[in-house]
């Protein structure tokens, strides 16, 4: 990565911190690393308002359910599938009021799936606190066939839609929740650079 050079569309994530000015709080975490991020959040001074935690454990690994039960004062919901967790989120939003603070810890796919759902309720992703945990795996949008390939760990990723070898750029679309993938050998067919794992 060139120093001093930054694609401004690439999101920046940071550790979760409670917002003390709020009407209510909603925490969504994914997998064992997300569970740990939630535990870390509960090490901080607890805010006054009601707190709901949605914990998704689909990927397996260390399970923090028991530990979270001890620290979450109001409402802990645990789901062993991504879809069920997203349904729980959908169910929570229609009655939610302004001042709801939303916190997310997990993979980029998890975060941006949530961002797309809450956008329908008028919440911008900029107003969601986001902590990247567990993996740097990317979702890649194929600019040629428009398919999105999830879980890309390498600099070059085969498109799940058209099979083209895509160079995974840093340019990120919040609307699609994906990085741009551009055919790597369009100018010189067959000339594929070395494939390396750079998003473990």
């Amino acid at each position: 990565m060139e120093r001093g050079y930054w694609i401004r569309s690439k999101p920046v994530y940071s550790a979760l911190v409670w917002q003390q000015q709020a009407n209510a709080h909603l925490v969504l975490v994914e997998g064992s690393a997300g569970g740990l991020a939630a535990m870390k959040l509960f090490q901080q001074m607890l805010p006054q308002q009601s707190i709901t935690v949605i914990y998704e454990t689909e990927a397996g690994g260390a399970d923090y359910t028991a530990a979270l039960k001890k620290v979450v004062p109001d409402d802990l919901q645990v789901f062993n599938s991504h879809d069920a967790a997203m349904k729980a989120l959908e169910a929570h939003l229609p009655e939610a009021l302004m001042g709801l603070r939303i916190y997310v810890a997990g993979s980029e796919k998890f975060m941006w799936d949530i961002a797309q759902i809450v956008l329908h309720y008028g919440v911008d992703d900029a107003d969601i606190a986001k902590e990247l945990t567990g993996t740097l795996a990317r979702s890649v949008y194929c600019v040629h066939c428009k398919a999105i390939t999830h879980n890309a760990h390498t600099n070059i990723q085969a498109c799940s839609g058209c099979g083209k070898k895509l160079f995974v750029r840093d340019h990120f679309s919040r609307r699609l929740g994906a990085y741009m993938g551009l055919m790597v050998d369009a100018e010189d067919p067959g000339q594929i650079p070395e494939i390396e794992e750079i998003y473990p």
């Binding site: 050079y5 930054w6 694609i7 401004r8 569309s9 949008y141 600019v143 428009k146 340019h171 990120f172 679309s173 919040r174 609307r175 699609l176 741009m180």
Partner: peptide, 17 residues
């Protein structure tokens, strides 16, 4: 530049450096 990818972006997002 790709409209389908960039639509909805803020000024600094779609103006790459």
């Amino acid at each position: 530049w790709s409209l389908n990818f960039d639509v909805g972006m803020a000024w600094h997002e779609w103006h790459g450096p």
